[in-house]
Amino acid sequence: MNKLETSIGALKLKNPVMTASGTFGYGEEYSKFIDLNRLGAVVVKGISLNPMEGNPVPRIYETPSGMLNAIGLQNVGLKVFIEEKLPFLRRFDTKVIVNILGNTVEEYVELARHLEEAAVDAIELNVSCPNVKKGGIAFGTDLSAMGGLVEQVRAATRIPIITKLSPNAGNIAEFARVAENAGSDAVSLINTLLGLAIDPQTRRPRLANITGGLSGPAIRPIAVRMVWEVFRKVKIPIIGMGGIMDSDNAIEFILAGATAVAVGTANFVQPDACERIVDGLECYVDENGLHSIREIVGGMII
């Protein structure tokens, strides 16, 4: 029996390790460095109906134990994704979760319908990207707007829906509860924390977008705390993320209440980070005499 097997609603995963959207492209680049078959799921770069150009450069800047990014959701758009990117990912024995974003409820609904037809395994509603003015975050910072969006997408599709929550929007547990009540199968958290770095010499912001999303180990304690807060408020599964670099970090999230974890910035540092984390989790369950990783979800001892 596979001790790492878990599930996000109806979505069965061979292990709880997935890639975080926006850090793994559409899987092609990293397939040269890791065996995608070993991943629980690949969560692809956010997809919009039409291609998006993204923000001007500089788009990234490293900060202590973290990085700021303001990519601006550059993506190939739905059509190219389905025709050119998805078939590649389908060659692997891993689940494909598609992160989607739009400016209106109708756009999300249309994306969800087409992706269900294309037989993706789940969709992740991006309502929390901090780096674009329109869309995404407009839904993620308003409880009723987000609830309405999730309801409409829920009504339009039967595939599992994951709502990705922002840490920049007030009480994250409230948003999680609204997502749950509106029919979301799971929540994923946290998206990046809004940050700013300034060059003291030029007095200009380090990023062309001025602000950017902070990720990496610097944000991990905040992310773990938020997972724990959400875990106490909702019954649906949580996908925890924020600065996971190794399997111990992943265990931390699981103990706080995450059913699965997503690895983001660590991929940039070590292209085989996800595979190492799967290895580490296998060791952990054996060393701790667990029958299943699920035994320790929310298992923090107080």
Binding site: G22, F24, Y30, E53, G54, V57, N267, P271
Partner: peptide
């Protein structure tokens, strides 16, 4: 030259403007 995070084409951090839109400096 551009700031890079992944170096392999995944993060889209290091793009540059070309006649055909943004292209990745690393890829």
């Amino acid at each position: 030259e551009e700031y890079m995070a992944c170096g392999v084409g995944a993060c889209l951090g290091c793009v540059t403007k070309t006649a055909g839109g943004y292209r990745r400096v690393c890829k």
